[in-house]
Nucleic acid binder design. Sequence first.
RNA 1: GGGGCGGUAGUCUAGCCCGGCCUAUGACGACUCGCUUACACCGAGUAGAUCACGAGUUCAAAUCUCGUCCGCCCCA
Length: 824
Amino acid sequence: MGKFKPALTSKRWKPSSEEELIDIWLKEKTYAFNPDSGRIIYSVDTPPPYLSGHVHLGQMLHYTQIDMIARYRRMQGLEVNFPLGVDRNGLPVEIRVEKEFGMSMQTTPREEFIAKCKEQLDKYQIEVTDAFKRFGVGYNTYDPDGSYQTDSPRYRALTQATFIDLWNRGLIYTDYRPNNWCFECGTTIADAEVEYAERDSTLNYLYFEVEGLKPLEIATTRPELLCACGAVFVHPEDKRYRKYVGKKAKVPLFDFEVPIIESPTAQMDFGTGALMVCSYGDMADVMAFRDFALKPIAAVSPDGTMTEAAGKYAGMPVAEARKQIIHDLKEKGLLVKQEPTVQRVPLCWRSDTPIEFIAMDEFYLKQTDFVDDLRKIASETPFYPPHHRQILLDWIDRVSVDWPISRRRFYGTEIPIWYCNACGEAVVPEPGELRYYQPWREDPPFDKCPKCGASEGFRGEERTFDTWMDSSISALYVTGYLRNPELFEKAFGNVIRPQGKDIVRTWLYYSLLRVYQLLKQPAFKEVWVPGLVVDENGVKMSKSRGNSPPPGPFIEKYGADAMRLFGVLEAGLGSDIRFSEERLAGVARFMTKLWNIARFVSMFPIPEPIDFKDLTAVDQWILAEANQMVETILPECEMLDFHKPVIEVRRFTWSFFADHVLEMLKGRCFNSDGQFSEVEQRSGWFVLHEVLRIILRALAPITPFITDKIYRELYNDGGIHREPYPSVNESWASEMTAHTELLLQVNRAFWKYKREASISLRQGLPEAYVPKQLEPWSKDLQAMHGIETIHFGTPKKKSGLVQLSLEESTESVFVSPPETGDDA
RNA sequence: GGGGCGGUAGUCUAGCCCGGCCUAUGACGACUCGCUUACACCGAGUAGAUCACGAGUUCAAAUCUCGUCCGCCCCA
């Protein structure tokens, strides 16, 4: 109609318009962090993504969910500290460089190798940063100065400073002991970095000769470790071997004798029930050697070949030695039989290759002394969802050895230690200074050995830290620990840790440990652990599985808002999110709907605010309904779970506001035949805008683009993201809400009647009777359905009237049909 | 082998903790009809579920207990 033109001109929301908003946000610094605002600081300790390759969809959905929390908290009036961080330390990039460029770490000069790693990381960093931007992740800034990188001198200085602190408190020590060793990475790794997978293997049955008895049959998957055999175990209740216990068994091929010992760790039903125990075969072997004080023999060397102990097999790679030994056993008739079996093998989670136990000198950080304290912290810190706390508790209960923190790699934070050339004493720099040390290339910041007093120079430590030593203090870094005491004072203690459940035993556990050791305080105010993003088949999306598509094409087609909304709509917090393009497309339709609702509302002027009591009864009822919607969603939002809130907002927006309220107020807001007073008309205008504003703000954290766009066009040039989140308004109440459901049913009855009677929706009805509870809607109902004369209650004479029954009510609606034939 | 979480229409999901109002919510998809003062990427409607299986507790079970099977994740 000529008089009312929509302020939003485009008929449809275009995902491409999201990009303009990204520029506006950057320009206006919409999400900037101002520690001096006087508001309470709320810090998000986001997982700094590890840069090892291209971004993937699962990863991005995960970050958008974290972003929703930050946005929600900001709208609640908190000063949100949400820095962009990236993790760049560690193995994956090194391995990639070695593979892709054929640069071996052992033969390439350290500087050169590091430079190549940096170059690769920079490339990936741009990609990941762009993706975050495109998905609308509202970090405080995308300026490199405002973000952090775990390999920056500033970050590494903090890692080193905290290490020096722990060193001086005596929490660090060195020891020579078997550890998980990854040949691919050439370094020791921690238990937390070991994963297990099932692999096909062969179980070999061998003869161990025993004096005076029949040879003992023993099954093993690792015959190459024969030379390291320290004992044979049989189960105490195993009758078959009772007479062997206490005797000596002769190790085939190597001809030395080992004791036969009773141990419940031998499984009677596996293999022959008799088990050979080799030094460093697996963790159980390591324990067994310790328990029985057996002398360990290292069979495998750190480069993956057999040691001298293997005799004629020395120098062979493990796999080749195994083949050769099996061959020799066969020849000598010592191999009874072979059968296929499935074995759980430990793998390095970074390189996915099998690990071995190898003894090396490494630095350890004490952790076993802290498990009780950590268990307490884990029990007291709020978890969202609460049941994910169990993952952490289970891990804490399993911690039994200290944390090996040194790594024989280049691309990591250097261990800040120098060794005195005179006495060999390990010396760390003075505490207190936030400075980045590189002992492999720098002189120490001291020239006298504190122990022997000599000034004969120092040798710098060459090893680096486990990368978790860096990332486990991210919460301290982002709150300014040691760097900005004023900020730290205000910010620490109100930090949320959002993260995936796959890194609970590493990142979360280590963070709690480190912060507790340094400050004797819990690291986090709250911990938020969502489900995994899985593919159509329910399998975890990961780069290595190749089941995680690049997000680009989906963004282009559906937009970031749709993808964000999809992630929330698909599952409650803690449940896995199953990706499906079909369903994403369905979700995207809500964007169009919301846009068109706003477009319709934008036809009407925005009147001066009107007091609630001066609105029409129907308009009061609409606000009361909106109020109830807000009341429903807030408790769930507080649980940091937007799944149900967003379903509720969508229901309210689409099935109530659009389908019923807009249809009902159309007549009054246009008022083209002047049936309504100007006061009534303005009341309608006001309510439409008021409700739209509530809907937009409720959705702003979820779909930041479309809501901001509409808000800027209609209400506020500054956008929506600094506006308050909707809250409950006690005075917005109406008794009419008791009859809402009845009203909706009456509307449906009219629509259904017209459809079934093939009457146009615009066609009027001469007369209608509706339930008397709906009397307050009288005028708007007339306008909505074109009822010339409306009555309330049941008609006395029903002749000439059509009765329309309602779905969930005993009440009925009666209408008199319009004149049939050729209607005007 | 142990632990955690789960198994609800073709698909996904709510409800389950705190049994009855569940003849089970919502969405996607399917089907039928419809251009109606924004929206056909729409509207109105229809169909579709023995709530994995078996047993038990109970006046009453999707919901509690036990067992079985299946899936995913984690651990030894």
